[in-house]
Design a protein around this nucleic acid. Structure first.
Lengths: 114, 114
DNA sequence: GGTATACTAAACCACATGGTTGTAGATCAC
DNA sequence: GTGATCTACAACCATGTGGTTTAGTATACC
């Protein structure tokens, strides 16, 4: 395991690396939207916006269902869990003062699973 | 605030979107390393590896100090906090069944801060 | 001083990204 | 059927990404 090659994380982090795509995620977290509604607040053309949506689909962050001429997009946030878990690995590196609390929580979790 | 433009998050998420860079972060989370040690386990040339390190530096995830001819790199994980916080925003979207527990924890935190 | 070591810098390449414009195809409303 | 609406698709462009090779600079060691 020289490099932790996990294409899913590649796709998710890449999807999150653009402000327009984060804005789309934010919007979809409130409600399902069609492509026009997604494109409207973004300062770009419609095709550009739909390309961003497709990037989110590749990362499994957005699901699309076609209803008539509308393509309704819904947030599927579950891949964010993997992203969050990966970053949380290094929590102790950014807040060492919580080390004791973390160990305590780990203990509690272990007991919970037992 | 049409798009949540925050160049810092762009840089951090982009930095995390490549397996080699995640591997570097992992390695540096254990100990400070020079560039040769970083490049060794990666399956690429030395210049390619140092380019990845520079991407991590742009994202403020790695700090470098020069000691003689060696460039020692240290993980500065704090920007990961922002990334984690952003993804955690949508925790309820990926695990709705924990909604009650989350509200409880939020209450406890509020009381803690009060 | 001479040589190995650690790293930088530049040039180059293939391909991906992020955007545009223009055209075309369904579908809804009348 | 006509026209407006929602979307797709293709072509194109500039720039960025991820990699290479080659050459060069600075430091440590003998």
């Amino acid at each position: 395991m020289v490099v932790d090659h996990s294409p899913r994380l590649d796709l998710v982090f890449h999807a999150l690396a653009h402000p327009a795509r984060r804005a789309i995620i934010r919007q979809l977290s409130a409600r399902e939207c069609n492509l026009s509604e997604i494109a409207a607040p973004l300062e770009m053309t419609f095709p550009a916006a739909t390309k961003h949506v497709r990037v989110l689909e590749r990362a499994k962050l957005v699901r699309r269902r076609v209803v008539g001429r509308q393509h309704l997009c819904r947030l599927h946030a579950e891949p964010l869990k993997d992203a969050a878990r990966w970053t949380e690995q290094f929590r102790r590196n950014w807040e060492a003062r919580f080390k004791a609390l973390d160990s305590l929580l780990d203990e509690m979790k272990s007991e919970e699973h037992a």
